[in-house]
Design a protein around this nucleic acid. Structure first.
Lengths: 216, 216
DNA sequence: GTACAATAAAGAAATAATTCTTCAATCAGG
DNA sequence: CCTGATTGAAGAATTATTTCTTTATTGTAC
């Protein structure tokens, strides 16, 4: 299963660690450093140095023995690899608490994502402004997405409406969905779905907390 | 590394799937069903049935051949296992966009978490109300956490302040931290840290999107 | 009742991810 | 220039997770 077309897909754990490295490397760069070795990163982050080396290798960067990596080059390689060097437009569906917060967050702009419009089904929300962006009726999403060549959709609607919204996004030609609803959504092959399931993290947190309190 | 005291810790992938099952099972329960089999869940969620069986087994529930699991019993077992049957108090640090959204979210109350207070460092925010809760100065967090027996902390401050806030939380006796800042934070052994790294998910999403657009 | 089909349970095999080992490259010090 | 220490690279070994296989149980139909 999960047979990728040609070349081996990069493992998700690796992909999720890259932003962590990126953040740390940026700080080093701002601090005036010029090179960095895996051992230095490992000491800072308390990771295994060989894992870091393998992770960074996926970006295609080469380091030099006894020196490490060129810091500026490395940061750039990570940003390019993650797609943070160019910006893609995104539509957000669900202008509730969480959705509004994400629209107003702003910092995503520096990480390859620009939320250009928010949509909702609730007439009470439609037409209102959320952080200077008007909330549009969800029915307009598919056409607008096609016209504006928007390829990313963010779902922050309640679970029961999530699949419906996802279908509209797919219909509008959206190719990647960031799903904050606590359920799996169906999408055709070729459409990427990334779940940000807060309830899942909460479950892990509480279960581990209860376990340690009981045992330790 | 990660040598747990006594019994085998439940794998995180399993823990993260349990809330997904829970959500689906709740819907079945509301729909009037009385029993459910792994194959049914598998058909709905497009998972492997044996994986579901193994996942559910960690809650200690027993099913019957040819019938499946008693639905009400199963839902209860999952909730109990995840710690969603009792409520724990939490403090949130960082009353910006995201923090305010989480405080106002409300739905966490049904999943074992009650955010009882919000803290911030910024004098402009201190004293203001966020969803009926007054924002308190971050300096008061440790003492209040001890007095109120709060064991969970949520970090929604910018990355540079995250470690500092985490230290205050640990100082206040907090045992589990839900970290939304895009960096690893240090905490002593026994304190659970769960990262909700939005930039990590964003990175995965963009990288995969760019890859499929390039290849497919 | 008896045979059959569906299913949970338990464990084996396969796969994926991490950690460990070895080796070669390169810079610093003498 | 050698020598040694440090590091990246590549691959092997280990560990974790998922998937497959087998077995035993139980309800349903005849």
């Amino acid at each position: 299963m999960n047979l990728k077309g040609h070349q081996r897909a990069v493992p998700e754990p690796t992909l999720r660690r890259l932003p962590v490295y990126h953040h740390m490397l940026r700080q080093c760069l701002d601090g005036g450093m010029e090179t960095v070795s895996c051992s230095q990163i490992a000491d800072e982050l308390h990771y295994d140095p060989t894992q870091i080396r393998k992770d960074l290798a996926v970006t295609g960067i080469k380091g030099r023995p006894k020196v490490g990596y060129d810091l500026a080059e490395l940061v750039d390689a990570v940003e390019t690899f993650l797609g943070w060097n160019s910006t893609r437009k995104a539509f957000l569906a669900g202008a509730g608490h969480l959705g509004s917060a994400l629209v107003g967050y702003g910092r995503f702009n520096r990480y390859g994502l620009e939320i250009v419009a928010a949509f909702d089904r609730d007439p009470a929300r439609i037409g209102r402004k959320v952080h200077d962006r008007e909330v549009l009726p969800i029915t307009k999403l598919p056409n607008l997405a096609r016209r504006m060549h928007v390829l990313i959709g963010i779902i922050t609607v309640p679970a029961p409406a999530a699949q419906e919204v996802a279908d509209l996004m797919v219909q509008g030609g959206i190719r990647a969905i960031w799903n904050f609803a606590p359920m799996r959504i169906e999408a055709p092959e070729g459409v990427i779905v990334q779940n940000e399931d807060l309830y899942a993290t909460l479950g892990v947190l509480l279960q581990r907390l209860n376990t340690t309190l009981r045992e330790g």
